[in-house]
Simulated scan of single mutants.
Amino acid sequence: MARYTSSFLAKTNLEQIPILLCQLVESCDFEVVYQATDYLMAREIPGQVPFSKLVTVEALVESTAAQNNEVPVTFVIKNDELPLKSNNHCQQLFQKLQLALNQSQEWRLIAAVAT
């Protein structure tokens, strides 16, 4: 199973986080499957790759650590594909999400880890 994580600070208040997360994942061609105030799950839209390569994104909002209009969010990007190559499908979508986060004014990188 390929799995990549990254942590970011959202430069906004806690109430705006669900809207920001939806816009972010939809801009990266994911569809929201489930959303709560402190959690979002989105999946890659089926049809382009085999089922085992479909990528899921989870966004975990650390609402208790929010302060001064900065909210920590951890992203987990994963799929069932074995990461036999360093440039696999999950890694490519992880990079796409990272790029979208880095280009946005609302997000600041804390850490990114490939596991």
Rank of each mutant, 00 (worst) to 15 (best):
M1H: 09
M1T: 04
A2C: 09
Y4F: 13
T5G: 04
S6K: 00
F8M: 07
L9S: 07
L9Y: 10
L9P: 04
A10D: 07
A10G: 08
K11D: 13
T12Q: 09
N13Y: 06
N13C: 04
L14G: 01
L14T: 07
L14D: 01
L14N: 01
E15P: 08
Q16H: 05
Q16T: 11
I17S: 08
P18L: 02
P18S: 03
I19H: 03
L20P: 07
L20H: 10
L20G: 08
L21K: 06
C22H: 12
C22S: 12
V25D: 05
V25N: 03
E26R: 15
S27Y: 07
S27F: 03
C28D: 07
D29H: 14
D29T: 03
F30A: 01
E31T: 10
E31N: 09
V33N: 09
Q35D: 01
A36Y: 10
T37D: 12
Y39P: 00
L40A: 10
L40Q: 07
M41A: 03
M41G: 00
M41Y: 02
A42Y: 00
A42P: 06
R43C: 11
R43H: 10
E44Q: 14
E44M: 05
E44V: 02
I45K: 14
P46L: 08
G47Q: 03
V49R: 02
P50S: 10
F51V: 15
F51Y: 11
S52I: 15
S52K: 14
V55T: 13
T56G: 03
V57F: 09
E58Q: 11
A59F: 04
L60V: 01
V61M: 09
E62Y: 13
S63W: 09
T64M: 12
T64P: 02
T64I: 13
A65F: 15
A65I: 05
N69R: 09
N69M: 04
E70V: 06
V71W: 08
V71T: 08
V71H: 10
P72F: 11
P72E: 14
P72H: 09
V73R: 06
T74W: 00
F75W: 12
F75P: 00
V76M: 06
K78N: 06
N79D: 15
N79H: 04
D80K: 01
D80S: 04
L82G: 05
L82M: 11
L82E: 11
P83K: 04
L84W: 13
L84G: 14
K85V: 04
K85W: 13
K85R: 15
K85C: 04
S86Y: 15
N87V: 07
N87Q: 14
N88W: 01
N88Y: 02
H89T: 08
H89P: 12
H89K: 07
C90F: 01
C90T: 14
C90H: 00
Q91A: 15
Q91R: 15
Q91M: 13
Q92Y: 05
L93Y: 04
L93N: 10
L93C: 09
F94P: 00
F94W: 08
K96F: 04
L97T: 05
L99T: 14
A100R: 02
Q103Y: 03
Q103D: 11
S104D: 14
Q105S: 12
Q105F: 07
R108V: 15
A111F: 11
A111C: 09
A112S: 15
V113E: 15
A114H: 11
A114S: 13
T115N: 13
